[in-house]
């Protein structure tokens, strides 16, 4: 009964995007993926009817949450109030924090701005430096070089600055995926120059894959790097890439064995399908 990911991107793959209005209900209960979330946010930013409907759906959903009310542990109250007392507040109502989808940040309806939509669900996370032992592996010189490049990126200390536990856990999971990939007999390493600057290494395994890139040029605020799983020549959305000091690591959940990986520069918030030519395409064979 496992759902895994076989239907993961049917709505955005190969066919024209569906009317995001049909997603309003699913959005209101956080049952959409990142791309769909951004589609809905784009819709409600420009469509007053949709924004009004969403406000009602979110209010109804809030009642479901309220119906589950359960007093938190008593000690939490003092902890929260003490923490608040030493936590500075944001001043401006239209502060963009760099994680929300560009211009949507200030136009999302219902004033639901504290939600930073793509932080914890994007496939890209910084990893802890991976204690990867390469010495026992036999690789061709090319593959070894690519692996070394990947590990060098992994080991950059500045990339470890995540504080929240969940992010640390995701980072851990990603590091372990990378370690597994680097050790996997079936793993194919593909390396390519990135148009515009930098280089990328794809590790394509029999179960998972990773993209590691370095020296990527900064993009302006209106555009983002978006990752695609290349499946039979068709790009399948694999989420936005979070660039930290020109470096990227991603372990896309959308990957299926046989896929390649590609990156393109897309408008802020990402696209359901590529709107520009790829800056790098890394294919397994």
């Amino acid at each position: 009964m496992s759902t895994d990911q076989p239907t993961g991107n049917q709505g955005t793959q190969g066919t024209p995007p569906e009317d995001p209005r049909t997603l309003l209900g699913a959005y209101a209960v956080d049952a959409v993926d990142d791309v769909e979330r951004r589609q809905v946010e784009r819709l409600v930013a420009t469509d007053e009817d949709a924004a009004g409907e969403l406000a009602g759906l979110q209010a109804a959903a809030a009642h479901l949450g309220q119906a589950a009310a359960l007093a938190p542990p008593a000690a939490l109250r003092e902890a929260v109030l003490a923490e608040a007392a030493r936590t500075p507040q944001e001043a401006a109502p239209d502060v963009t924090d760099g994680t929300t989808a560009g211009s949507h940040a200030s136009t999302t309806p219902s004033g639901l701005h504290p939600v930073t939509p793509i932080m914890t669900v994007t496939p890209t996370r910084a990893a802890e430096p991976a204690p990867t032992d390469l010495s026992r592996r036999r690789r061709s010189p090319l593959m070894l070089a690519a692996a070394a490049a990947a590990v060098a990126v992994l080991a950059v200390p500045g990339v470890v600055a995540w504080q929240q536990a969940e992010r640390a856990q995701q980072a851990e999971a990603q590091a372990s995926t990378l370690t597994e990939l680097l050790g996997g007999a079936q793993t194919v390493l593909v390396r390519g120059e990135v148009t515009g600057g930098g280089e990328a290494v794809a590790l394509l395994g029999d179960r998972s894959a990773a993209l590691v890139a370095s020296d990527l040029p900064d993009l302006d605020a209106d555009t983002v790097y978006q990752l695609w799983a290349m499946r039979d020549g068709v790009p399948v959305d694999a989420g936005l890439l979070e660039v930290r000091e020109g470096q990227v690591q991603a372990t896309p959940a959308e990957y299926q064995p046989g896929d390649g990986l590609a990156v393109s520069v897309e408008p802020a918030g990402g696209s359901a399908q590529p709107t520009t030519e790829p800056v790098v395409v890394l294919l397994p064979g």
Binding site: G192, M230, G233, P274, E277, P278, L282, L283
Partner: peptide, 13 residues
């Protein structure tokens, strides 16, 4: 590796 190539079978963006 296809640096800066096209989307392959995808004819247009």
């Amino acid at each position: 590796a296809h640096a800066g190539t096209t989307w392959g079978t995808l004819t247009s963006v």
